[in-house]
Design a binder for these strands. Sequence first.
DNA 1: CTTGAAAAATGGAGGGT
DNA 2: ACCCTCCATTTTTCAAG
Lengths: 154, 154
Amino acid sequence: MEEILDQTDLRLLRLLASDAKITTKDLAARVNLSPSPVFERVKRLEAGGFIKGYIALIDPEKLNYGLIVFCNIKLKHHDKSIGHQFVTDIMRLDEVVECYNISGDYDFLLKVYAKDMKHYQDFVFNKLGSVTSIGSTHSTFVMCENKNTYNINF
Amino acid sequence: MEEILDQTDLRLLRLLASDAKITTKDLAARVNLSPSPVFERVKRLEAGGFIKGYIALIDPEKLNYGLIVFCNIKLKHHDKSIGHQFVTDIMRLDEVVECYNISGDYDFLLKVYAKDMKHYQDFVFNKLGSVTSIGSTHSTFVMCENKNTYNINF
DNA sequence: CTTGAAAAATGGAGGGT
DNA sequence: ACCCTCCATTTTTCAAG
């Protein structure tokens, strides 16, 4: 697999990044090629890992998940097994949509979706509360999501 | 538009949330229906705003964007026009993929993708540096992305 | 919801520059 | 190596019941 992308490949990635449902035919028209080479290029981009997958974006608010919280977490100790156990425990929690190991005062940053403050309180007390590797937490509440592109802008 | 979803609708949303390319035929098999009603349900979910769109997930690392930074921002002043100007300015920056108005010590939280530390430094000095509404910033660097589901888990 | 059928897209064969 | 033009197969899409 040759890992060099030309400008056409990049344009295809940008088009697919904003609309996974665009047809090969339309893609072809946008990059001034016929469908066949475009089809092959897209397959190459998929096989090469440039495209990790195609997903539908679901509106959380429509499903009554209106609250986004960034939850900073400090572990009790910093050995490898505790960190691994924490990640394993966190992976199971549906409310947690993202988890990052971070620099700074805290060890992990979670992005959490909750229905409301009551739900979030329940999440912190009952779910995070039973993750024994956690030392302390600090929650930052989102008042407004101003921008989310879901992909890098390259 | 009836805003009540049954279990079949929820299953369709979950299936599409993880794979936008699944065919109506396969969807139908998964929910034990024929393609036609599934097709109609999906159109209803799209029209009703439950599905906001379909996107390809691009691997940032493959495009040499290996650095994720959460950048906390404090504004100089807190009037409406300054906040609005800040959001407008931030929307233009390609490196910023997400922007949230948050509670706590800082006013905004940005998720930023950069090629490397040098690129991020340039972003902070040259791009954020020219956004005059910014008072101060605090950067948190991601060492490892442990989880990202890209959607709520409902 | 089902059947059924027209319109469109996919995915590949074969050939050209 | 890359692209094109067909074309069979599959899928989408929308009637009518």
